[in-house]
């Protein structure tokens, strides 16, 4: 059976898996953003915490995805919520780190000038530091999202569905069509997410930072 006819036959199953996959990615990354951006802002204002927290989150990042899912499976049981929790945890590091460095890398001369002309810390944060950190933050979100599209293929393992399910079935039954039907859309999905967020990255970069003379 050719891939095309296979995909035609299994259309509804593939679309279902794809929808599940997108859900997993979008919600876990949103959750990750909700946690990491405020946390990054907090760390930038309490720098004593920054090194230990970033190191700890870094260690979590070295836990292989399979291990993380396995542990979550035992601790939290099967299902979509478990997968979301694990994926959200994975999405934290790049966004957190980029938020923190984006804010703290703002040139000290700019900070001194801001303070010297009477901006409060909050005004500095919202009018200067966060706008200047936007590119870095969005880039962190892009990196996270690409990771999460990848890790979400493992979610099938704990019964959360997604395109991984198809690859899984393919691997178990040595069925090339199933493998391709899961692998190709997941790769395309990763490219799409990366491309679209990359576009946002460019759009959101403050014009004054784009370099080059007008």
């Amino acid at each position: 059976m050719t891939l095309m006819t296979f995909m035609g036959e299994q259309r509804s199953e593939i679309i279902k898996a794809l929808t599940q996959h997108i859900h997993l990615v979008v919600f876990s990354v949103l959750l990750g953003i909700l946690i990491s951006i405020p946390a990054g802002i907090f760390l930038s204002r309490h720098k004593a915490f920054a090194a230990p927290v970033l190191a700890a989150v870094g260690v979590i990042q070295t836990i292989p995805g399979l291990v993380m899912l396995g542990l979550a499976l035992i601790l939290l049981g099967t299902g979509t919520q478990t997968a979301l929790a694990v994926l959200a945890v994975y999405s934290i590091l790049p966004i957190l780190r980029n938020t923190y460095t984006g804010i703290t890398e703002v040139d000290s001369g700019i900070l001194e000038a801001g303070r010297g002309i009477g901006m409060t810390r909050r005004q500095m944060l919202f009018n200067v530091q966060l706008p200047l950190a936007t590119t870095s933050i969005v880039s962190g979100i892009r990196i996270s999202t690409v990771y999460i599209v990848s890790w979400a293929t493992l979610a099938g393992l704990i019964g959360a569905g997604g395109l991984g399910d198809l690859i899984w079935t393919g691997l178990a039954t040595y069925n090339t069509n199933y493998i391709l039907a899961g692998a190709l859309p997941s790769a395309v999905l990763a490219f799409l997410f990366s491309g679209v967020i990359g576009l946002f990255e460019r759009l959101l970069t403050p014009r004054g930072l784009k370099g080059g003379r007008a």
Partner: peptide, 11 residues
């Protein structure tokens, strides 16, 4: 207040 690094807000 004016400083050597100028410190204009680039955004």
């Amino acid at each position: 207040y004016v400083i050597q690094q100028i410190g204009l807000f680039p955004n």
